[in-house]
Design a binder for these strands. Structure first.
Lengths: 163, 163
DNA sequence: GCCATTTGTCTTGACGTCAAGATAATATTT
DNA sequence: AAATATTATCTTGACGTCAAGACAAATGGC
């Protein structure tokens, strides 16, 4: 019994014509997402970051040396619009965590790279972040987590497959 | 193989010290959530709504006759702050979809009720919304959907249980 | 080589959200 | 009954996001 069960019962009473099976699944995903994000945001804040800045720094960090990507690359990794990415990079540049440089091969393109400070911040933040995520999934047994993860992976790959 | 697998591989190469199991699960939930919301937003837009206004109207609708709740009740149902709820109600009032009235028993409190137009809009929108949700889960078999839903329900109830 | 198209990034203006605090009415304490 | 605490809602200012479009550089067809 969770919060979503109550919602489905209300709909069943008010609109018995509707099949609320999919609504239950999607409602649970939304609700879980909300809780997870709220908790993870606190970890980001401890490092002076928010989800937006964390995502950009983390994308640069995990891309490996030399920790540099174009705005377009970052865009492809993060499900946001180009204007949003420009703004994110602006903020990170102001904070001294990334540097902007022109791409010598293509003057339209930029090269966003982690600064030394950016590298330090994201490495510490990721370590903390992983610990937070471990805590947020600790109420699942290893077995449960893997089973759930497997099903979500199949679902996600089918969603992405449709494009 | 989905988008998240690629991310985990990068982290494994760059930060082999980290246990990325939880990150995979949470990453998949986030990614799926993003896709689902993007699609559902289009359905809301067809009815002149967004997720915010849809949620408020739907909460009023499924509460049953007389389709009226206080801002505090709506707040408890929607994971947003009080200022956000004030703004949402303002917009819906301007659009003529809800009406504000004072609660005669408690002058601090308001009574937000669906107008006739609001009732019509949300009934049509919900019907459409459920169809969209059915489409968004159609790549899962009935068996898969129920299994996934069950695991998510257990996870959610444990998260909510912690408060 | 020239023109149209595409690509990569940035700009603008509007919107939804939040955190913090203001305001007013009701409950509680003394 | 007065003083204090609590509750319910709203206000303010800042921020992150988006959609639409601007702009410059690179590409492709002729």
């Amino acid at each position: 019994m969770d919060h979503v069960d109550g919602i489905l019962k209300q709909w069943n009473r008010e609109r018995p014509d509707l099949d609320v099976g999919p609504m239950g699944l999607i409602g649970r995903i939304s609700r879980i997402y909300g809780y997870l994000m709220r908790e993870m945001s606190e970890t980001f804040a401890k490092h002076g970051l928010n989800r937006a800045s964390f995502d950009v720094l983390a994308t640069l960090r995990r891309s490996g040396p030399p920790y540099a990507l174009s705005p377009g690359d970052l865009l492809a990794a993060t499900m946001v619009t180009s204007g949003t990415m420009t703004n994110r990079i602006d903020q990170l540049e102001k904070a001294g965590l990334v540097a902007r440089a022109h791409n010598p091969d293509d003057r339209r393109s930029m090269r966003i790279s982690l600064t030394q400070k950016g590298r330090e911040v994201i490495d510490a933040a990721v370590t903390d972040h992983v610990a937070t995520q471990a805590r947020l999934t600790a109420m699942l047994s290893e077995e449960e987590r893997k089973a759930l993860d497997g099903m979500l992976g199949r679902y996600l790959s089918r969603i992405e497959g449709e494009g």
